[in-house]
């Protein structure tokens, strides 16, 4: 049987070779070739990360990768993990999987195959260095999610939501002054070409990724095939995390090495100025989400 895997990222994205292809191979090996996973990269099955969830629910593809942040209303609890200070960039995925049952209820319309925490969203700016929240005042900053929007607003900036594919043109023409996105964007989305400064070191949002499967397609598999998907998916979570964190670090270093670009690593004092504000945002969002969210923060905090 052939399972279609919808991926909106280009075939050159590090995730493809480092996570999705190994996932496909592993499923095939574990089922002795009975299950085959075919990757459709670059939005071949329909473009746009926001529709990925629907593609799986509506049977366009059996498997798909995306971020819960694109359909926030479906994943309020999962998105608690992206708030500043809730999980750690290096150990986030492990922490999440240690408490995976806390999130399963949000994935009941599909089968959750993989879930990994990403690299931190950092701040690329077009032509002004940012070292303190004061520097952000009045800046138009692209944000990837609602929580990140709240964060930028609290820091004093003006959040603008915009799909990742439009950041380059918007920053080049000055429609935005900066963008919050993880370090892979230096290369994957060419932000190294249009941003002069990159600020890292403060606590920020860490947007998780998922791979999901159509529930009926999963239920129709034999028990062996199900466990093949589950174990390959679990492994893909680790690989996805590893690829993202390594690539993001490389992206940050690559930015620093480029001519005329400045990497700003905040000192502890400088970072504290941001973190004090961020802490309030986390508290506020968790409070709005209620008891369940607080339980998650406590659980993840205990690792």
């Amino acid at each position: 049987e052939d399972l279609k895997f919808a991926n909106y990222m280009a075939a050159t994205h590090p995730y493809v070779g480092g996570t999705f292809e190994p996932f496909a191979k592993s499923v095939e090996q574990k089922t002795d070739g009975k299950l085959k996973v075919t990757l459709y990269n670059g939005g071949e099955l329909g473009s746009g990360p926001a529709e990925q969830y629907s593609r799986v629910v509506d049977d366009v593809a059996e498997l798909a990768v995306s971020l819960p942040g694109y359909t926030s209303s479906k994943f309020p609890l999962t998105l608690v993990t992206e708030l500043p200070g809730v999980i750690d960039e290096d150990t986030g995925t492990k922490t999440i999987w240690n408490h995976i049952d806390l999130f399963q209820s949000e994935f009941r319309r599909v089968k959750l195959v993989s879930l990994w925490s990403s690299a931190e969203n950092i701040l690329y700016t077009r032509d002004e260095a940012v070292k303190s929240p004061d520097d952000i005042k009045g800046m138009k900053i692209r944000v990837p999610s609602r929580n990140t929007g709240k964060l930028v607003e609290a820091w004093g900036g003006t959040p603008v939501s915009m799909p990742v594919s439009e950041i380059y043109n918007a920053m080049q023409t000055g429609v935005i002054d900066g963008a919050m996105i993880d370090g892979t964007a230096t290369r994957a989305f060419k932000l190294g070409e249009v941003a002069k400064y990159l600020t890292v070191g403060m606590e920020t949002t860490i947007s998780p990724f998922y791979i999901i499967m159509n529930r009926d397609a999963f239920e129709n598999l034999t028990d062996d095939e199900k466990s093949a998907i589950e174990s390959a998916g679990r492994k893909a979570s680790e690989l996805g995390h590893e690829v993202q964190v390594t690539e993001a670090k490389k992206g940050i270093e690559a930015f620093a090495d480029m001519d005329g670009k400045t990497l700003i690593r905040l000192s502890d004092d400088q970072a504290a100025a941001f973190d004090k504000i961020s802490e309030k945002v986390t508290k506020q969002v968790v409070q709005q989400q209620g008891d369940q969210a607080e339980k998650i923060v406590d659980a993840l905090g205990s690792k």
Binding site: S54, D58, G69, Y70, T71, S72, S73, K74, R109, S145, R146, G149, S161
Partner: peptide, 21 residues
């Protein structure tokens, strides 16, 4: 037919837009 099912589905699950809900 599919859009009607989707509308019912989205209503039942309270699907909302990202920023403005």
């Amino acid at each position: 037919w599919r859009a009607v099912l989707k509308a019912i589905d989205a209503w039942r699950w309270g699907d909302a837009t990202n920023m403005l809900s």
